[in-house]
Amino acid sequence: MIMILAIALIMTIVGLILGLLLKGIDRKIAAYFQSRIGPPLLQPVYDIIKLMYKQTIIPVTAVRWLFSSAPVIALASSALLLLYITIPYIFYIFEINTTLQGDLIVVLYCILIPSIAMVTGAFSSGSPYAAIGAQREMVILMSIELPIAVVIISVAWHAADSMADPFAISSLFEYPLWHNAGAFGVLGGILLFFAMVLVLPAEMSRVPFDQAEAETELAEGISVEYSGKLLAFILLTDAFKALALSMLVVILFFPYTLSQLFGISFQMYGHTLTPFVEIVFLLFKIIVIYSFGITFIRVVMARLKISQVARFFLFAITAISIIGLILIMLDPNMRII
């Protein structure tokens, strides 16, 4: 118990720094695509420090307690999401046996909480811009809910086939989606991956799905009235979510470790270094997923209209993910019934 608490504390701090670094890398890569030099890697950290020293204004029209507690709830729940996804994987890498397995359904709900908290805060701020942004955020949330659920259910379907606990996060590492898959299974997996990668920028509200924060039309949308420390909390929430969601994609689709892939292990002076190398490999995977799923799309596309986004996710992406689910169910190598 104490060990888990200590690990959680360390990982929150490390996750905070890594999440901010991830955002720095994102800005650096975006600058590279636009042939700029770009801000320094630690720019998000400087922003946070600056905001911590700024005055925090609470507007008179706002519902005070709701307005100031919403970013805190969002920050706490996004940190919870990160820990909930990451700790089973860390235990798996370090080969620690626990009863801590994690639950995919809980992850499904935890993804929602930061956004819902932000929507509540935006509605309570009393600003019309924030209200419009919050409505848009709700529309996006509702339309991406089904694809995420379908992706998680298909992964669980496959794990159930392997006699593991289907909804436990830890069984994903033992039986990844591609484990024992035939042609149908691989095709379905690719479709699901495609759907999940497109859900990623919508969940993070990045271009082309950043209608809720559209800075040119809505003046930053849901965060329009936030300043100072509360705004810093919102940026930190964003950093945690960036790390947690790319981590989720990694464990859903590419949970392989180096030793699983190539059967190698690292030794130095009789101590095994394998877990630490695995963590570096994990960070590498996270950066690749984040830069392809978010930075790439963010740089090449412009903002869509909100009706286009709703239609895109409700019809196209939902259809793609359901086809992926059906393909995985049809795969003769993993038949459950």
């Binding site: 800005r27 600058a31 700029r36 030099i37 770009g38 801000p39 320094p40 720019q43 400087y46 922003d47 600056k50 700024k54 204004i57 800075e215 040119t216 809505l218 003046a219 930053e220 965060s223 329009v224 009235e225 936030y226 300043s227 705004l231």
Partner: peptide, 17 residues
């Protein structure tokens, strides 16, 4: 490329320096 000095255009006066 003013962003390399950390200069950013924001949409709301509440975020501005």
């Amino acid at each position: 490329d003013a962003e390399r000095f950390g200069i950013k255009l924001v949409g709301s006066p509440r975020h501005a320096d």
